[in-house]
């Protein structure tokens, strides 16, 4: 199997404002969100990052998506470094997170074309891809309705489709099913499996055990910005369920703080 993503000891530290210091009950001016995190993902697999809220999952994915830069370390995606050539990385990946919003004023149809242009997708491919994706997610019914007038689920579908206009080989999803109704969530998880079957590599972050168990080939458990364990899902769950593995690790590391 080809190693398509290699993360080597990336770290990210944020400065805390005085308000955040109070919330965190600390006098320290900085917070290490991710500390020397390393893992790899292989071509054609779904890799899951599992961890509680605030563990550093989103920060890690944002570093991979080149929205923020690691303070230390590097990640190489399909041979391109996020530190050295972020623009090249952006061509190779599709990134979806709830923080990325679409402009209310435009229609899904316009936005698909707009982002296709930004990704320099040739016109004929764009039209074909648009038809396919719009049909799959049922967007064709509201393709000419402004985003402002769409429901949360519809918006999520449009965001998903827009993040895939350039048919990237590596897809990074932050909490892919968060805030979705059960039907839409099922459409999305099925789609992730379909992407995998087409040879794409998918990286997802989540705190939902069942999602990992359902779709992931390999999993990395992050606690407090550090990788607690990273292995094949099958190996990890040989003796215990994923949930038990997670809580054992969690109490091992944070038991005294609870």
């Amino acid at each position: 199997m080809k190693e398509i993503l290699k993360v080597s000891e990336i770290s990210k530290t944020f400065r805390l404002s005085s308000k955040q210091q109070k919330i965190e009950k600390t006098d320290r001016k900085t917070k290490t969100a991710v500390e020397k995190l390393s893992f790899s993902a292989y071509e054609g697999e779904i890799f899951g990052l599992l961890g509680p809220n605030g563990a550093g999952k989103t920060t890690t994915l944002r570093m991979l998506a080149t929205l923020i830069r690691p303070d230390e370390g590097d990640a190489v995606i399909d041979g391109v470094s996020v530190m050295k050539q972020p623009e090249e990385v952006r061509k190779k990946i599709g990134f979806l997170t709830s923080e990325l919003k679409l402009e209310d004023f435009f229609t899904p149809d316009f936005l698909f074309d707009f982002f296709s242009d930004l990704h320099k997708v040739p016109d004929e491919i764009r039209l074909k891809r648009k038809d396919e994706l719009f049909e799959k997610f049922g967007i064709d019914k509201f393709a000419q309705v402004k985003v402002a007038n769409l429901s949360t689920g519809m918006k999520q579908k449009v965001s998903l489709v827009v993040s895939l206009v350039h048919d990237p080989d590596i897809i990074i999803f932050d909490e892919p099913t968060n805030g979705l109704d059960v039907i839409t969530a099922k459409v999305v998880t099925d789609f992730l499996l379909e992407l995998k079957s087409r040879g794409k590599t998918v990286i997802v972050s989540t705190h939902i055990f069942s999602l990992i168990e359902k779709i992931c080939d390999r999993v990395g458990i992050i606690i407090d910005g550090k990788m607690a364990v990273c292995d094949d899902l099958k190996k990890i769950t040989e003796e215990k369920s994923l949930e038990d593995v997670f809580f054992d690790l969690y109490f091992e590391r944070k038991g005294d703080e609870i």
């Binding site: 998506a65 080149t66 929205l67 623009e87 090249e88 952006r90 061509k91 990134f95 923080e99 990325l100 919003k101 679409l102 402009e103 209310d104 982002f115 930004l118 990704h119 320099k120 827009v162």
Partner: peptide
Amino acid sequence: GEKERGTIATLLITPVP
């Protein structure tokens, strides 16, 4: 406005310089 609404980040993850 785009920053506030989170739409600028969507632009920033495209390969456009």
